[in-house]
Each structure stands twice: as structure tokens, then as C-alpha cells.
Write a protein that binds this DNA or RNA. Structure first.
Lengths: 208, 208, 208, 208
DNA sequence: GATGAATGAGATTTCATTCAT
DNA sequence: TATGAATGAAATCTCATTCAT
């Protein structure tokens, strides 16, 4: 029954466990994911889990911090790149595969639940409070570059971001791919209207 | 010691239990609410709960159906009222106290969780699929009445609805009342831009 | 496997569980007694245990309070009986079978452990702080009745009580019955010396 | 990150671990002290602990044997010193700082617990069986020297020893310093009465 | 209709111990 | 000698659900 004891570098092991947990959290939610299922997926013993994480909550907190840091770092790195135009930055930030890896809406939902209230702060900061202002900055740059006519307020940015995330990325709705395309097209149009851009300036939004 | 057995009309009893559950679900989430706490709040015995509801899930399903029906009925009643202009209808639908009672974003969140997957359909129908198209209809009426210049697509409506709900009504963010006002103002402006309305046509959006 | 569900009066059930726990606590100590073993001895399911007691600690606390109350009540009842002489009271208090049932040195030891620190107060009150003063009172009565020549201070009483309890009743030593007799004889002599009584006035101390 | 591997003389290392364990056992009890906490206090790795001690029990056994040997050696060395009078010996044995270091009531309590039954014998020998008889011998010497009138039986000695230890040195009671003084005074008086000594012959008992 | 005692599967967590390096 | 990652049995506790009354 018992497999041989395999020793790995702590960082590797910890990452493996985190990955296993992440997958399960996304699939079944935090509460419905048992530590038992995590260790089975990770191929470790119960004790190993608790060697790396103090509690089940702890692994969630880890996950969040990781994502938060990743996201912010990535966004800032793009924004501070002086070689890029506003449009180029938006492309990178909104639809690039790099971003896909970092943002993690389902984990956000987990965290937002009242029983994880202590972790909310963290998320307030990233998703809406950090990312949206950073995006608003890029739109400002766009206005300077003459590609947008309006100033986009941080609040508008937050509303748009939240809306698209909830409708498109939350996984709560099961849209057909046509419906999805329609949504992205409308999102593009809305954003162009709000920013005062010429039609199709932001066409990359709707091309997945 | 033991409380007297109190016999009530089944419908009354059932409603009482449902109300107790609703309050707790909103406050602590579905998973974190124990049947024990529900019966305590409702002032009944364990067995009584299971006399009225097959399972814990069952009471949630009940709650959803109830809300869904209430909401849809209310929206349709307003929309079908031929005496009202588009603006009047929007006022009633978006900011009236009657609506406040019926829409229930926290229950929606409960339901949307993966472990309650069977209940999602229901909510897809109401929140985004039913309400948004109904609102889009009213905007269409508004265009006919000459108060809006653009057609507002169902999808835009859904994005705006989702965004405002998530940011403002989810209870996940703790905005100051000024920030809240700023959001509502921006929401108003965004909606006016999208609908192609004159500034302040939809001022009621930002007057709580 | 599963036996039929047997429903009993809560008081009866609670007492049964308490008794089972008491026996195991005495035999193996508090820490070494698992809830599992308690429920097996009591013939109940895990849940039933936690239906009656919030935690494992809780049943210990219960036990203590029970003993404390019993003991004090009994001692006071004897002391306030005006028909009895000091000697008669001491007989009743020190060696009667009624007392045997109430005092419970092994539970006292459990409680005195540092990890149960919160429960110590309780015991300070009974064993040393309550009982010893009550006994000292009886010795005072004895002096008035002319059977003792010395006043016995509360502190002396406490030291004697503690010593005899630790050596004889703690169960930590495994004395032969002769050794035990010798101890009781010496305890008798010591007490007589301290109280200033004629030899064998307190002979009942050494006659089990 | 990882601390350098420090190599020490085995005896030194073993002593360090033993000391760490002793402190923790006294503070929190044997069961409540984890091997983890011991290695942390000792600044070593898990494996190192198990290199020096077979099991957790093993370190306790070590501790006991050490204490037992120390104590007995010390007592005998004092008793066999022909230059000292009985009173001088008692002074050394009962209240000297050397003794303080060697006797160890809290470890005794640990050991006396039922789950450590195998270790009890050891302690029966020291605390009550070895020390008390040795003290009784000194009282005998005192009688020969004319300073005591009565023979003090081993059993009386054991009762007094146990009582004073339990009440005063167990740490289970939190006496004020006045109460403590009162106890010592009464202990002195009791002992003098039992030994048949003139008042204040044993005054050193009550002078800490 | 209503009660609440009883259930038991399963969840989280602890910790003494092992073993590959 | 020394390390610390890995183990897994066992402990405590939760809670939706059942059922005799």
C-alpha cells in the first residue's frame, strides 16, 4: 500500500500541493474541498500537508497572496514600460496569455465569501482597487496620445472590470461561444464609447 | 423546561423557517449556516425543520424559486404598465424600495457557488438572463420615446448590471458613502453615454 | 452492526456518559482517555457525546462541579447537625462510606494538571480551602467539649489532609494492606498529638 | 536559510536536550509538551532528538533517573557527614539551595501519572520511600542527641513530607506570601510537636 | 404536525516517529 | 553525527439527517 518515501525540495513540494489545492478549489469550491482530497491529488500523506501549511485556511491565504503579488507585479511591469503605447499596453494587460495565468477569478470568489472575511482586504486591493486604477492610468496615457477623447474615471473602470469579470470569467454562466463573442464585442463597444475612441480602436478586446 | 408545542398553520411555519434561513444565509453564507442555527432562530425543533424541508439544500432551492418568481413578476408588472414612460419605469425598477425587497444579490451569490450547481440555471434565468433583457426593452421604449439615441444591447445591459451589482450591492467592498456616491454618479454617466441620453436624464440612478 | 436507536431521558443518558468518563479518567488519566473510548463504554455514538457535552474538557468540568457541590453539601450538612458531638462528626466526615462516594482524589489530580489550569480554582476551593476549614471548625467544637486540648489551625489541617490524601488516596503508591494500616495508625497518632487528645480518641481514623 | 550543522560533544548535546525538555515538562506537563517544542528550545533538528533518545518516554526516564540519583546521593552525603548535628543536617536537607536544585516535585507529578506507570517505581523509591526514611534517621540521631523526645516514624515523616510538598511546592495553589509563611510556621510547629522538640528548635523550617 | 435525542460519516488537526540524505 | 522532509495512526469535533415518541 504505502509508496516509497519521496523527498523533494520544499519549494517544489509546496508548489505541488498548492497547485493541487487550486485545481480542487476551482472545481468544487473551498468548503467542499477536503484536505483528504488535496493530499490524494498531490500524492502525499496527511502529515505532509500540515508540515507545509498550518491549516486549510492557510493554503488559501497562500494562494491569494501569490496571485495578488503576481498580478500586481505583472501589471506594473507592463505599465512602466516606456516603449509601449497605451493601446499596446492594454493589449498586453487585457487579453494576453500571460495575464490569463495570473488573474484567477474563481479564487477571488472563494476569498470573497463571508467566512473568509479576513482575506477580503487583500482582494479589495488587487482586483478592484489596484488593477482598475492602473488601467485608468493607461487610458489617461491614451488620451495624451490622442487615441481617446474622454477621461475614464477609476470608478467607471472598476464597474466595467467587475462586470466583464463576473459575466465572462467567473465560470458561473455557461455561455455558448457565440454568446461569448457577442459579449466581448459589446464590451469593446462600451469601452470605446466611454473612452471616446474611434470604433474598433480596441478591437483586440473581442478577439480572444 | 421544554417549550410548549406550538401549532401553526403550515404556510406560516414554513415562511418563518424560510425567513430565518434567509437572514442567516445572507449573513454567514450557505455552507457556514448550520441547520441547528436555523432552527434556533426560527424557534423550532430539528424534526420540524425536516418535516417542512427534505434537506438543507431544499430550503435554499425554495428561497431561490421564491425570489425568482417575485422578481420576475414585479419587473413584468412594471414593464407592462402602459401608463408609464421609459424613464418612469427605470426609476421604479432600479431604485424603488419595492425592488430592494425583491432582488437579493447575496442569495444569488450563494446559489452561484459550484457546489450548488443544480441551482444555477434558475439564477442565470433571473438575474442576468431575465432582468437584463427586460431592462433592455425599457431602453428600447426610451429610444422610441426619443429620450435615448442609441439601442442598448441586452449584453451591454448585462455587463452594466453585473458590474454595478458586484461593486455596489455585493457587500464585498466597504466603500465610504462618498465613494459610493461617486460610483453611482459614474454609473449614471456610463449608462447615459451608452444609451445616448442627455446628461442627467438618468439622474435618479445616483440619488439613493 | 448498528444497534437499534435507544432513547433515554437526557438526565439518565448524561449521567451514564459521565460515569463512563469518570471510570476511564481514573483508570488512564484524562489525556489518555479518548472520546472514542468513552462512547464505547457508554454504548453511544460519537454525536451523542457531543450532543451532551461541548468538548472533552466540558465533561471534566462537569465532573468537577458535581463533586465539588456534593462534597461541600455533605460536609456542611454534617457540621450543622447540632445533635452530633465533634467526635461523631469526625467519624462521619473522615471514614464513612457516604464520604467515600463524594470525595474523588483521582479526579482532583486530573484537574490539577497545568493544562487544566482553569479548573484548578474550583478545586482549591473544595479540597483544601473548603474542607480543611470545615474540619478545623469541628476540632474547635471538640476543644469546647473538652475532648481536645489544642486549637488546630486551618493550616495544620490542610497539611494533614493533603499528606494523607496524597500518600493514601491518590492511588499513586501501591501499599500493602499492612503498610496502609501502619499509615493510618500514624495518621491517627499525629492527629491526636496535634489536637492534644488522649491516645485512641480518634481510633476510628485507623479502622477502615 | 538552514542553520549550519553544529557538532558538539555527545554528552553536551544530550544534556542540552535534557535541560530543554525538563523546562518544558515542568511548565506544561509531559503530555502537553511536544517533541517539536523540545527540539525548538534545544535548537536542534528532529532527527537529532531521535539520535539521542529512542522515544519521548525515553527522555523522561532519563530525567527521572538523573534526578533520583542526584537526590539520593546528596541526601546520603549529608547524612553520612559525622561532623554535623541532627539539626545541622535537617537545615541542609530541608531548606538549602542545593536541595532546591535536586528535588523536583513537578517532575514527580509527571511521572506519577498512570500513563507513565512504568516509571512510578522509581519515584516511589525516591520521594517517599527513600527520602522519608533518611529524614527519619536524622530525627533518630536528634533523639540520641537529646534535642527530640519522641521517635518519628517513617510513616509520619512520609505524611508530613507529602503534605508540605503538595500544599507548598506543587505549584497548584497560589498562596500569598503571608499565607505561605503561616503554613511554614504551622509546619514547623507540627513537626516540633511530633518530634517532641522545644518550640523553635526547627525554626529554620519557617525561614525561607 | 411537532419534538429532540440519537446517529455516524467524515472533516480537520496533531504529533511521535522514520528515513533518505 | 546531524538533518528535516515525510509519514500515518489516531484524536477531536461537526453537522446533516433519522426516527421513536
Amino acid at each position: 500500500m504505502s509508496t516509497k518515501r519521496v523527498i523533494k525540495h520544499p519549494d517544489v513540494r509546496k508548489l505541488e500541493i498548492t497547485r493541487a489545492a487550486e485545481i480542487l478549489f476551482r472545481k468544487k469550491g473551498y468548503a467542499a474541498t477536503s484536505v483528504e482530497s488535496i493530499i490524494q491529488k498531490a500524492g502525499i500523506a496527511k502529515g505532509t500537508f500540515y508540515y507545509y501549511f498550518k491549516t486549510k485556511q492557510d493554503i488559501l491565504k497562500n494562494l491569494v497572496e501569490q496571485i495578488a503579488t503576481n498580478m500586481e507585479t505583472y501589471f506594473i511591469s507592463v505599465i512602466e514600460d516606456n516603449h509601449l503605447s497605451a493601446i499596446q499596453k492594454l493589449k498586453k494587460l487585457l487579453r494576453s496569455p500571460e495575464k490569463k495565468e495570473k488573474i484567477n477569478p474563481s479564487v477571488m470568489k472563494i476569498i470573497h465569501r463571508p467566512e473568509n472575511r479576513e482575506l477580503q482586504e487583500e482582494l479589495n486591493i488587487i482586483a478592484i482597487k489596484v488593477i482598475a486604477p492602473l488601467l485608468a492610468k493607461v487610458f489617461q496615457q491614451g488620451k495624451k496620445e490622442g487615441v481617446f477623447n474622454n477621461t475614464v474615471s477609476v470608478e467607471s473602470m472598476q464597474l466595467i472590470l467587475a462586470g466583464s469579470q463576473f459575466v465572462l470569467d467567473s465560470g458561473l454562466f455557461h455561455w455558448s461561444s457565440e454568446q461569448r463573442k457577442k459579449f466581448l464585442k459589446e464590451l469593446q463597444r462600451m469601452t470605446e464609447q466611454i473612452a471616446g475612441a474611434k470604433p474598433n480602436t480596441l478591437s483586440f478586446i473581442s478577439s480572444e
